[in-house]
Nucleic acid binder design. Structure first.
Lengths: 157, 157
DNA sequence: AGTTTTTTTTGATATAGGTCAAAGGAACTC
DNA sequence: GAGTTCCTTTGACCTATATCAAAAAAAACT
């Protein structure tokens, strides 16, 4: 899938769980004023989907796109339900993957909630060292809850 | 379990998953300057644990405490592993519960990341209507990533 | 290689919310 | 029911980061 391809738009029901074999993706949403807010980055070896939409089959709040030319595997929610109900072991893997994701989101929440802009950037470098220099600065800034001007000033030092 | 009882301290490995039958709990951590930051509230019918610690059996970053006299059920991680490996259906329930929690944390993250203090308080009222008036204001303020003075001023209006 | 588009940097100014300090209230304790 | 202790409110002032605007740099096309 080429760079900058939308996999899901806001409002669509996300039918697939994606796996990033190569490349990179991100999820984002639009604020009321139209600005994009990056919600998450998905690097090599990660599962990527619109969590709210895929698991509840409800309209997605997020967009999902590739940020680089990528190789993406996918499975539909019905295929996955079949797989998980057929194999207990797969159900377990899915549970563990969910918990791993949960742990990461909790970590990010803590970083965002009570740290300065500079500390949040350091968290980013630690959590996504590979991503930090591959995507536009504005995407990272919104992911970290700051403006790109602020991030640019932080990077200068 | 009486009010204000610590179930887990920072540094301990959390051996149990708790279920709140009655009452309420919260998880929190201490910032470098010693201030408490509420990480999550657990109301009636919710599972409560130190996510990072319980699922990875690593030292907990968080404290877990009751905020009211409560009835709490618990299961040890070894018992739970047995249960989940014995019954596929239980494994599935655990997966779905994890995803539900993941969805909620993602929602909170979005609320915290790009909303004003007032909007965050409104999110709190929507997500935890029952809790908002039962716990000290300082706990809610830190949960929402603001000071208690700010929350007090917001509430006045 | 030159033109357009996108991204990043820089500067000036504004503001939401933090910090500090102190005064009121509520809620336990003996 | 007076004395602690804890919790909430209020006021004055300050700072980190946002906003706005424009220049500079880099990347993407033709």
């Amino acid at each position: 899938i080429p760079k900058n391809t939308l996999l899901i738009r806001e409002g669509q029901v996300c039918k697939k769980l994606y796996y990033v074999k190569k490349g990179m993706g991100r999820s984002y949403y639009l604020k009321a004023d139209g600005k994009e807010v990056t919600q998450w980055f998905f690097g090599v070896g990660k599962f990527m989907t619109s969590v709210d939409s895929f698991f509840q089959q409800s309209p997605s709040l997020y967009y999902l796109e590739t940020l680089e030319d990528s190789i993406i595997y996918s499975i539909s929610n019905t295929q996955m339900d079949l797989l998980l109900s057929k194999y207990h072991k797969m159900e377990q893997i899915a549970r563990l993957a969910s918990i791993e994701m949960l742990t990461k989101v909790v970590n990010k929440l803590n970083a965002i909630q009570f740290q300065t802009a500079r500390e949040r950037y350091e968290y980013m470098l630690a959590e996504f060292p590979d991503i930090s220099y591959r995507v536009p600065l504005g995407h990272i800034a919104s992911y970290l809850g700051m403006t790109q001007e602020t991030l640019s000033r932080i990077r200068k030092n």
